[in-house]
């Protein structure tokens, strides 16, 4: 049977369709548009405009960076220790705890966030960036724990045993010998944690109510609310680029670690 479509052509046409919106957005953010920050010609007028939007772009960017850094650090520490525990130790309640962590995947986001809004209020973490990061760590746990447990299980036990025989404690064995071996797993977990926390819109929308604390997605979406007057579409696309470019760069640099996350079967829970 003759292929209906020429492979090279159909793939190229599809690639153009998939890349077009990104290229258009980048182009729109620098092109001239009467009444916008960049009135004529090409330049970074829209980006200069967005610096002054609301609390100022630097503030929103810093909020996003703080939340994402805390999320990545927290997820790595919790899942490295937890993965080690689940891969190498036996203790009462081990299987129950692992299943409970995986069950996070089954529960709708909104079902946990509504009570979390109340709960974080009780412990003084409502409307706080560390509180939001803790929530993101929790949502990352099923994937991260699964990934790290498998990474530790893939290391031959003999390596660790010889260290233990040499009088090394289990924590020293973890930091000196095992962690370097599970580095690819840690990078995958960190990448997923960054992308999820940097881009999430729903959790900060619910858990934060002070505009000065907003991360980028909530701040940039607020540009479309008419309370700020007419929508400045050029500035909006500049906002899209500010959010997207770090993710695109990270993805392109760490692509094989991202794909590892898919191959691991961790999406299956």
């Amino acid at each position: 049977m003759k292929p209906l479509l020429n492979y090279a052509w159909s793939r190229s046409a599809l690639a153009v369709i998939f890349l077009f919106p990104l290229l258009w957005s980048g182009w729109s953010s620098v092109r001239g548009q009467p009444g916008s920050g960049q009135a004529t010609g090409y330049g970074f007028g829209n980006y200069a405009q967005i610096l002054k939007f609301g609390e100022g772009l630097p503030r929103y960017f810093a909020n996003s960076l703080i939340v994402s850094s805390l999320t990545v650090a927290g997820t790595l520490v919790v899942s490295a220790l937890g993965g080690y525990a689940f891969a190498r130790f036996t203790f009462p309640g081990k299987n129950l705890l692992f299943l409970a962590a995986l069950a996070i995947l089954m529960v709708p986001y909104a079902t946990i966030l509504i009570p979390l809004y109340v709960l974080l209020g009780y412990i003084g973490l409502q409307n706080s960036l560390p509180g939001l990061a803790l929530v993101f760590v929790m949502f990352q746990l099923p994937f991260a724990l699964y990934m790290m447990r498998n990474s530790f299980e893939a290391i031959p036990r003999e390596i660790e045993e010889s260290a233990l025989v040499d009088g090394c404690g289990s924590f020293r064995a973890l930091t000196r010998i095992l962690l370097p071996s599970v580095r690819p797993g840690l990078i995958t977990v960190g990448l997923f944690a960054f992308l999820a926390s940097w881009n999430d819109f729903f959790a900060p929308l619910i858990l934060l109510n002070d505009g000065a604390n907003f991360p980028l997605p909530v701040a940039v979406v607020s540009m479309t609310q008419r309370t700020f007057g007419a929508i400045d579409y050029g500035m909006l696309q500049a906002g899209v680029m500010v959010m997207a470019i770090p993710c695109l760069i990270l993805f392109l640099v760490l692509q094989r670690y991202y794909v590892r996350g898919f191959m691991s079967g961790a999406l299956r829970g």
């Binding site: 890349l19 990104l22 881009n199 999430d200 819109f201 979406v221 993710c247």
Partner: peptide, 19 residues
């Protein structure tokens, strides 16, 4: 190329289409 839109956050993607 096919995957790249997936690296962009969903909120950013929605705003991109909004414009």
């Amino acid at each position: 190329a096919f995957f790249l839109p997936g690296a962009v956050g969903f909120a950013a993607a929605a705003l991109l289409f909004y414009g």
